[in-house]
Design a protein around this nucleic acid. Structure first.
Length: 473
DNA sequence: TCCCTATTCGA
DNA sequence: CGAATAGGG
């Protein structure tokens, strides 16, 4: 009887692509050397799929990209195995089913859950004599790679970025041109469908690569300026939801881009992953100790709950905030500058806990990545890694006038304001004939909200400082 | 990746 | 008297 071919498993998690995929590449090399076959697999993780932040739209987005990945593999001559359940158990069942598994390959992710999961999988595979290979690839520089001259992690983005640019970047690995078919005895499995509440962007690596090309052609050259203009379609790359599920390699984006400002955005992706890997408790706690215990309103009591609902439902009466929240609700995306304005409005003017906003954004954004989302919310709230003065309070009116002066963005998302002229578009409450269907009064006065936050912060930080002094003595 | 106010500057 | 700029929160 002929000896069965060795099998090399590629376990995809959050890198749903075949291009620049070091784990796939290595598995293919091993298969070439030992005459074996590569079996790619996605296991839909019940532990992740049952989490409340994985809303139907995000489940659907993920699953459609799994479907597209299967198509990528089919066009190479192979296929993608799809399972669902407890990931380690499913992986073990697959190993038993396939037999002769020599190695398993993954691209690493670094959340506490991911690290625990991989450790369990590695141990299980060792019992079956399967070699475990963890590769980089989800980041340009993996957590822990960018270190100070003293070998420590960076605590400020500016310094991290400075070092980041000096480091040699990993080579892109070639996408395979052809693969061997999967052993016929393997049941490839169905990919479930989940109904999304919104229209999803086109799934798959081809769509992601196409989007990158589009951005490099249209938006990149003028990125420094136009990234602040939410009214423009090409204002930002809109690649975040491809990066998040790994339909696009961040390293490829780095190599193809010429714009350092945009490359700096890619650096943030690495930086916030590095921060979270080093300090996992910052997922739910203020990174800066002096902000621990800040008296945020929590969105549970009657008054703050009412405010929170208005913010969520785009009924604050501030057109830029409401337009942003509608874009988010309706598309799973929000333009970058508007994200800052909406987030700042919640934390500062409404004094509501950044964690509350973070969770809402994470569920609604297709790119809802924990590391990035937490990092950015803490940045806005002023309690994050980067030193940020508490008085950074965005004014939704002046931001609108400055960056979307004719109001195109606002009118696109708030049809009730479609006839409002540019000079009133950010202050519709001052109009004599107020637009129908839109709040006639803002939820809170800008000065009132601003002062309340500033006063609360001043007092809190003073007490905190005095406390620290007392402890010193 | 800020906001506001005071002040200066040029018309 | 509006635009540009500096300083401080």
């Amino acid at each position: 009887m002929a000896q069965a071919k060795p099998v090399h498993i590629v376990w995809h998690r959050a890198e749903l692509r075949t291009h620049d995929h070091p784990a796939l590449n290595h598995a293919l090399e091993l298969a070439k050397a030992d005459g074996g076959v590569v079996v790619p697999v996605v296991i839909i993780d019940d532990a992740i799929f049952s989490r409340s932040d994985l809303t139907p739209r995000r489940q659907a987005h993920f699953l459609e990209n799994v479907r597209a990945l299967r198509e990528s593999y089919r066009s190479l001559g192979a296929n993608l195995v799809v399972r669902r359940g407890d990931v380690v158990k499913e992986l073990e069942m697959l190993v038993r089913e396939v037999g002769h598994v020599a190695s398993a390959h993954v691209v690493s992710t670094y959340t506490p859950y991911a690290k625990k999961r991989d450790e369990k999988a590695r141990k299980m595979l060792a019992e079956h004599k399967v070699e475990w290979h963890a590769h980089g690839g989800q980041y340009t520089h993996e957590p822990g790679e960018v270190l100070t001259n003293e070998g420590k992690r960076y605590g400020v983005f500016g310094a991290y970025r400075k070092k980041w640019v000096t480091l040699d970047k990993p080579d892109i690995v070639e996408a395979p041109e052809k693969m061997a078919p999967l052993p016929t005895k393997i049941n490839v499995g169905d990919i479930p469908r989940v109904e999304s509440d919104i229209v999803l962007p086109e799934a798959g690596e081809d769509a992601a690569l196409g989007r990158l090309e589009w951005f490099l052609k249209n938006g990149e050259k003028t990125y420094e300026k136009t990234r602040d203009e939410p009214g423009r379609e090409d204002s930002t790359s809109r690649l975040s939801y491809y990066f998040n599920i790994g339909a696009l390699s961040p390293r490829l984006a780095y190599y193809q881009s010429k714009n350092e400002k945009w490359r700096a955005e890619l650096t943030w992706w690495d930086f916030y992953a590095d921060v979270m890997e080093r300090c996992p408790e910052s997922a739910t706690q203020e990174f800066r100790a002096k902000w621990l215990g800040f008296p945020w309103r929590d969105g549970h009591d009657k008054a703050s709950k009412a405010d929170l609902e208005k913010w969520k439902n785009a009924e604050t009466g501030y057109p830029l905030v409401d337009a942003g929240m509608r874009e988010l609700n309706q598309t799973g995306f929000m333009q970058n500058r508007v994200r800052m304005v909406c987030a700042s409005f919640l934390c500062k003017h409404l004094l509501i806990d950044w964690r509350v906003g973070e969770e809402i954004f994470r569920g609604l954004l297709l790119c809802g990545d924990r590391n990035q989302n937490v990092g950015n919310w803490q940045w806005v709230a002023g309690c994050g890694v980067d030193p940020s003065p508490y008085f950074r309070i965005f004014n939704p009116t002046s931001q609108g006038k400055k960056f979307d002066s004719n109001g195109d963005y606002v009118r696109r998302w708030i049809p009730e304001l479609k006839d409002v002229p540019a000079k009133s578009i950010y202050e519709p409450w001052k109009m004599r004939d107020k637009p129908k269907g839109y709040p006639t009064e803002p939820i809170i006065g800008l000065e009132e909200g601003r002062d309340r936050f500033a006063e609360t912060a001043r007092q809190f930080l003073r007490e905190k400082r005095d406390e620290a002094k007392r402890d010193e003595k």
